[in-house]
């Protein structure tokens, strides 16, 4: 029987489950069922992680490609307001609380 090279090492049993281990466990009986559950739980966790990592990396790449239209609009509005002086700042120069500091 041809096995994956990883399955031959002792480390592989604890840290990683190649498909061949599943087959071996089935032929050996149910003595390994508990640890198999543990292995598969880890396998699933690792798969989810890998997918998330891939998504993260691709998001980091794409985020810089797309133009932030909403932020640009906001920046434009701010500059136009200043250049055309549309927002009067002199309306209420915060004398709202002159405070009775007698």
């Amino acid at each position: 029987m041809k096995t994956l090279p990883m399955a031959k090492t002792k480390l592989a049993k604890r840290d990683f489950v190649p498909l061949s281990l599943w087959e071996r466990a089935r032929s050996e009986g149910n003595g390994h069922s508990e640890s198999l559950l543990h292995y598969w739980g880890q396998r699933i966790a690792m798969t989810v992680l890998a997918v998330l990592l891939a998504a993260t990396v691709s998001a980091c790449v794409t985020i810089n490609i797309y133009f932030p239209a909403a932020a640009a609009e906001k920046a434009a509005d701010k500059i136009i307001d200043e250049v055309w002086q549309l927002k009067k700042q002199g309306d209420a120069p915060a004398p709202a609380k002159p405070d009775e500091q007698k």
Binding site: A72, D77, I80
Partner: peptide, 9 residues
């Protein structure tokens, strides 16, 4: 973006 906003404002 500015072209639109100038006109808008």
């Amino acid at each position: 973006t500015f072209a639109q906003r100038w006109v808008q404002k």
